[in-house]
């Protein structure tokens, strides 16, 4: 049996993991399951498509970094798109979630986010149609790395990026004031206020960071498959599975959960066929909730 599924699974898993990091942060600080997170991923990809298009339209086509399929416009455009996706999340919070937070219960927020998710997806379809779009049509040659595994240069770059992002998130949460404040609000919002933390500011930071991370996974997804309006929504189940597997609130847990889900999905595709792919995340999710609801690295009941 070929070990290729390992490489494909780890790549998909890194992408799922990055999305799950944002999801786990918003969940632990805002205390509701945010269904729009998948749509932030789609919006992130489209926003990057837009910023890259605008940059190349403005300055002209740029050479790509061989052997990768992309050049500096994707880097600069990606950073811009991360900021824009963060702003989109902030905007949605100000318009929808903030008013509900005052009165609403968790379930009201979940349902509101479900509605917002439909609306965000419909807007993408309206703006960009459901025709697939691409960052680049350049064909990537997969390079053999041993054991019969082949990896494209883009995949390798994205894995590296995912690692950098997770380490950055880890440092943010453990070494900076805003990161410690986020952990404080997630554990005990009342005590956080008592020690002088402006909870509203922490919530804004959380949306910004969650949106930006969703954008990164959107770009990763866009580089490997086609960009379509429902691509992020389709990822929702694996995202939740990864976040719960790793333990709500745990950044490393979300990434490791993502890798487990990614590899399990790829393995299942190879062993029993692609029809069962989406069942894998579901089975993992349910199994974890039954066996260990707080997840691998969680501190609280999920």
């Amino acid at each position: 049996m070929s070990l290729q599924f390992l490489a494909d699974g780890l790549f998909a898993g890194a992408l799922i993991g990055l999305g799950a990091v944002g999801l786990t942060l918003t969940y632990s600080i805002l205390r509701f399951s945010n269904f729009t997170h998948g749509d932030f991923i789609s919006w992130g990809a489209y926003l990057a498509l837009g910023t890259v298009g605008a940059l190349t339209g403005w300055i002209g086509p740029a050479a790509r970094f061989m052997p990768f399929s992309f050049g500096w416009p994707l880097i600069v455009g990606g950073l811009l798109a991360m900021a824009l996706t963060g702003l989109l999340a902030l905007l949605l919070d100000a318009a929808l979630f903030k008013p509900l937070r005052r009165t609403g219960h968790g379930i009201v927020m979940v349902i509101a986010s479900f509605g917002a998710s439909l609306a965000l997806r419909a807007m993408l379809e309206f703006l960009f149609t459901s025709e697939p779009a691409y960052f680049s049509r350049a064909i990537q040659i997969a390079i053999p790395v041993g054991l019969g595994i082949r990896v494209t240069p883009d995949q390798a770059a994205m894995m590296g990026l995912a690692l950098v992002v997770v380490i950055a998130m880890h440092l943010l949460l453990t070494r900076t004031h805003i990161g410690r404040s986020m952990r404080a609000v997630s554990e005990n919002p009342a005590l956080a206020r008592v020690v002088g933390i402006d909870v509203a500011a922490v919530i804004r930071a959380t949306w910004l960071i969650g949106g930006a991370l969703a954008c990164v996974s959107g770009i990763m997804l866009g580089l490997t498959v086609q960009i379509r309006p429902q691509m992020g929504f389709d990822l929702l189940l694996p995202l939740f599975a990864a976040a719960i597997l790793g333990g709500i609130g745990s950044v490393w847990g979300a990434i490791i959960g993502g890798l487990i889900v990614g590899v399990a999905e790829a393995g299942a595709v190879q062993l029993i066929g692609s029809e069962y792919r989406s069942a894998v995340a579901f089975v993992l999710l349910i199994a974890m909730l039954l066996v260990r609801p707080r997840g691998l690295f969680g501190v609280r009941e999920g």
């Binding site: 410690r180 952990r183 404080a184 554990e187 005990n188 009342a190 005590l191 956080a192 206020r193 008592v194 020690v195 002088g196 933390i197 402006d198 909870v199 501190v299």
Partner: peptide, 24 residues
């Protein structure tokens, strides 16, 4: 005044329960 501004005014409060961040 919002609770988080009180500390800046020099008023500190130790609640009866859950008064430390246990995960930190």
């Amino acid at each position: 005044t919002a609770a988080h501004r009180m500390v800046r005014l020099g008023l500190a409060f130790v609640p009866q329960t859950e008064n430390v961040f246990t995960t930190m």
